[in-house]
């Protein structure tokens, strides 16, 4: 399968394009002015992920204004909302196998930073971010070191 390695800088950039190309996200996220969101992949040495990797989306009013691919939890913590999960769980979320809110209820996704009531208020916006992620051509067999 050809696609961007996950996680990688290229995947993060393509994700921004997918978010901006999703009209349902534009609608659901129209009122979002609460800051950036970081998707953090927990370190997993068995998989070659020795440190956490983070993809920060600068989302505002239904638009993704930019992205940043970072290494380490501290670097990802500059985002206003930080969601941490294992590589396998992110893969399941991106693949549409688990709903992000259900994943949080099961403890597979953890909101480690950010205001939970705000996150819940924008539940449809979170779902549309996941839908956008599923549209990014992804190669799960490779990851950027």
């Amino acid at each position: 399968m050809s696609g961007h390695p996950f996680p990688s800088e290229a995947w993060t950039g393509a994700y921004a394009d997918a978010v901006n190309g999703n009209p349902k996200y534009r609608e659901a996220g129209k009122a979002w002015t609460h800051g950036s969101v970081a998707m953090v992949i927990a370190a997993d040495p068995d998989r070659g992920l020795n440190v956490e990797k983070g993809m920060i989306l600068d989302v505002n009013e239904g638009q993704c204004r930019g992205t940043e691919y970072v290494t380490g939890r501290e670097a990802a913590s500059v985002a206003d909302f930080v969601i941490v999960a294992t590589y396998d769980d992110w893969r399941s979320v991106i693949g549409g196998e688990i709903d992000p809110i259900k994943g949080m209820m099961q403890g597979r996704l953890k909101l480690t930073k950010g205001h939970l009531p705000t996150m819940l208020r924008f539940v449809e916006s979170s779902r549309q971010l996941v839908v956008s992620a599923s549209l990014v051509p992804t190669d799960f067999s490779r990851m950027e070191p």
Partner: peptide, 12 residues
């Protein structure tokens, strides 16, 4: 998980 979410929701 859900237990911690509910506690955090109430607290906030």
């Amino acid at each position: 998980g859900f237990a911690s979410m509910m506690a955090e929701l109430v607290r906030q």
